[in-house]
């Protein structure tokens, strides 16, 4: 059975998921072994890729579906949910 975890996260950054925030998300996501995907309506983005995250063009308050698949998916989802709530420490 594949280890798969899912959650909903909300963008809290004032100007949405812009490039600076995308950089922070991808840096954090890249620290997990799991494959991490963020979904905004019909757009799926690889959370480890900046260019992919930019496709989401998500403004503040957007709800995204976070899916992690892999051995550390539970830890990844838990920590990323927290990080999104905090806006990855960015304004």
């Amino acid at each position: 059975m594949t280890d798969r975890h899912e959650a909903t996260v909300t963008i809290t950054n004032e100007r949405g998921l812009h490039l600076h925030v995308a950089g922070l998300v991808s840096k954090r996501a890249a620290s997990y072994q799991s494959e991490i995907t963020l979904i905004n309506r019909d757009i799926k983005a690889n959370a480890k890729s900046i260019m992919s995250l930019a496709l989401l063009a998500a403004p503040k308050t957007t709800k995204l579906t976070l899916i992690a698949v892999g051995p550390d998916s539970e830890q990844a989802v838990n920590e990323l949910v927290e990080a999104f709530a905090d806006g990855f420490g960015a304004p």
């Binding site: 812009h18 490039l19 600076h20 905004n40 019909d42 930019a54 496709l55 063009a57 998500a58 403004p59």
Partner: peptide
């Protein structure tokens, strides 16, 4: 990087997401 970000911010503001068809 800044030009890309500015374009992205405009897109976020207008909330015009690229549809699956567009890409």
């Amino acid at each position: 990087a800044r030009e890309f970000n500015e374009a992205l911010l405009r897109q976020i503001e207008s909330q015009q997401h690229l549809s699956a068809k567009e890409f």
